[in-house]
């Protein structure tokens, strides 16, 4: 193991998918959900996050660097697989391929989303608030782009939790793996609902 980095890299990739990226995703969707109460509620929640101490450090340590590693290595992993769904159309094989497809979709979405919000703020000083999102999402194209992006990201995270449990040896028996399939289905439904509800509140 000593001179082989593959094991370490794969475990790091798996770990970062949940801590911190997955936790951040959940946090992000919870903050966004305040938009369903009122624009002010969202702005307050967003400002609370913006005013956390050491914001830049937190962003780099908990989001940018882990996400960059996970995404780059994830693309590599995704393209070493060869789909055989046509011949072996089992449920888990579908989840396996969807994990890879949603990873790539999520990457496209996240790059655009960060460009439009966080980078626009850093470069042009664009203020990040309810109105910015309402403006972006008033275009039907962008609205559906965000819908697909959010569903992809949430699916990828929820199904990723399932494989995280296998990767670390938490769920060994088929029974426990099946149980966690239902748990992660629940995670998928809840966070997809929250994400879409927020997008609708911004847009309409």
């Amino acid at each position: 193991m000593a001179d082989n980095k593959e094991f370490f890299n794969r475990r790091l990739h798996s770990f970062l998918g949940v801590f911190p990226i997955g936790l951040f995703l959940m946090q992000h969707l919870v903050v966004n959900h305040f938009a369903t109460y009122s624009p002010e509620a969202f702005n307050n929640a967003a400002h609370f996050m913006e005013n956390l101490p050491l914001r830049i450090l937190l962003e780099f340590a908990l989001i940018y660097i882990p996400l960059l590693f996970h995404a780059v290595y994830g693309i590599y992993i995704a393209f070493t697989a060869k789909s055989n769904l046509k011949r072996y159309g089992y449920f888990r094989n579908w989840m396996f391929m969807l994990q890879r497809v949603t990873g790539v979709l999520t990457l496209i979405f996240v790059v655009w989303h960060v460009w439009e919000t966080r980078l626009a703020y850093a470069i042009y000083g664009t203020e990040i608030n309810f109105d910015l999102m309402a403006d972006i999402l008033s275009s039907p194209f962008m609205f559906w782009f965000y819908i697909i992006g959010v569903i992809s990201a949430v699916f990828h995270f929820a199904n990723g939790l399932w494989s995280f449990c296998v990767t670390w040896g938490l769920t060994v028996t088929p029974k426990s793996q099946k149980f966690v399939t239902y748990v992660t289905l629940g995670v998928f439904v809840i966070f997809t609902y929250m994400g879409i509800a927020s997008l609708i509140s911004f847009a309409f």
């Binding site: 475990r11 072996y88 888990r92 094989n93 989840m95 296998v166």
Partner: peptide, 11 residues
């Protein structure tokens, strides 16, 4: 190419 290269497709 060992254990870690499994992606849990479970076919």
């Amino acid at each position: 190419g060992g254990l870690q290269a499994c992606g849990n497709a479970q076919n």
